[in-house]
Amino acid sequence: MASDPRRHHDEQVWAAFEVEVLPHLGGLFRFAMWLEQERDKAEDLVQETMTAALQSFHRFRTGTNCRAWLISILRHIRSNRQRASTRLSLVTDPGDRIADTVPFVPPVPQQLTDEEVLAALRRIPPQYQEIIVLCDVEEMTYKEIADALGVPVGTVMSRLHRGRALLRAELSQPSQGEGERWHSAGS
């Protein structure tokens, strides 16, 4: 019996998608969860990302950077959602001004709980949070991060440097309150 060519093609697409994309699901969700801070929203975002990735999978070239590709889709979907839900204007890289005024980088205390580290990370501007997460947690290369965020490699390096300095500054001083100082609204 002759097989249905369309079905055969669909199976091939799924097999390739399963190999290339699904291994990144855990990291993608972790990143989404960090950005959204609510499980329902993170799950919606990841599901929409995966659906969009499947729909444009024919444009993905095997062997290129799948993780960066997925994160760029996720960020794009998220920024579209934010534009749809708010009319707030973006502040132009406020952390640049703050980072420029950091006088020195204090040492990191030896005894830190996971909660203290995550809370300190939440208190720095979001553009530095995401670079630190992608570099230190997801262990992406500078080039991968640059591809994912659509910024030059030099920007990745400078943001990482400033972000780590800000994070160390946050960790070396007592918490400034319960609420986070920066929301992950800008991207």
Binding site: M33, E43, Q47, M50, L118
Partner: peptide
């Protein structure tokens, strides 16, 4: 410390239920 905090965090971890349902949905 940052990596450990993320990896250890249950709140940031994908649930098996969501992983399975998403894989089924996409498939």
């Amino acid at each position: 410390a940052v990596r450990r905090a993320f990896i250890n965090s249950q709140a940031l971890r994908i649930s098996d239920e969501f992983r399975d349902s998403l894989a089924a949905h996409v498939r």
